[in-house]
């Protein structure tokens, strides 16, 4: 087995010592192998988003180890976390979080701006992905004018532009109707075929009852059960 993500006794404490202290993640240990598609399942407030953002190097745990591709990231300064996040992860959020007022293509290229890659390189990558997701004909349109499905594809394209090994999706179908959810699942399947590791936090049976899901991890009160 080829482990790509591993957590050891990860705990996150917020507002420690204050009356509003919370522990969204408690003592979580798990392993995810390369190429696996995993669903994080649990009721609202069980800590799915929190765990996902820890694994995705968005922030640091209070204690425990998080090993991404063999490297412990639990204690890294933010700018190194950011570097790893930028090179390893693609995020699909609950909201689409596109930047209104700029074009589809620009939205998609945005994550690569700070990396310093040359413009031809950016363009080539963006065009490949737009082709793959079938939104090339919309590339110069401002995103706010697109249909929900198209916007969804733009958001996915943006998550894929850095060619990530791991895709993290947080309730990706929460705001979608059945048809769009189906589209999304098809894209996920495609990505799985390409060998990407996928972690989806959701309580939507539409997703976790599909057969392309390899494994389910259930959470409650910040713990894995």
């Amino acid at each position: 087995m080829n482990t790509i993500i591993k957590t050891e006794n990860v705990t996150k404490v917020l507002n420690r010592g204050r009356p509003n202290e919370v522990r969204p993640v408690r003592d979580v240990s798990m392993e995810i192998s390369k190429g696996e598609t995993v669903v994080l399942k649990g009721p609202s407030g069980s800590g799915k988003t929190s765990l996902l953002s820890l694994v995705g190097c968005m922030n640091r745990p209070t204690s425990g180890k998080i090993i991404v591709k063999g490297k412990d990231v639990a204690k890294l300064p933010e700018r190194f976390l950011n570097l790893i996040r930028r090179n390893t992860f693609g995020f699909i959020f609950q909201q689409l979080n596109l930047i209104n007022g700029i074009s589809v293509k620009e939205n998609i290229m945005l994550p690569l701006y700070p990396t310093g890659s040359g413009f031809p390189e950016l363009k080539k990558r963006a065009e490949n992905i737009m082709d793959k997701l079938g939104i090339t004909h919309r590339k110069h349109f401002p995103v706010q004018g697109l249909s929900g499905g198209e916007q969804q594809r733009v958001a996915i394209a943006r998550a894929l532009i850095n060619n990530p090994d791991i895709i993290l999706a947080d309730e990706p179908t929460a705001h979608l109707d059945t048809k769009l959810s189906g589209d999304l699942i098809n894209i996920m399947k495609l990505l799985k075929e390409e060998g990407k590791t996928i972690v989806i936090a959701t309580h939507d049976p539409l997703i976790y009852e599909r057969d392309f899901i390899d494994r389910m991890i259930e959470m409650r009160d910040g713990k894995i059960i």
Binding site: F91, F93, I99, P114, A159
Partner: peptide
């Protein structure tokens, strides 16, 4: 927030 989430760093 979006820029930070998609990989822009504080200094960026």
């Amino acid at each position: 927030g979006i820029l930070k989430a998609i990989g822009w760093e504080t200094s960026d």
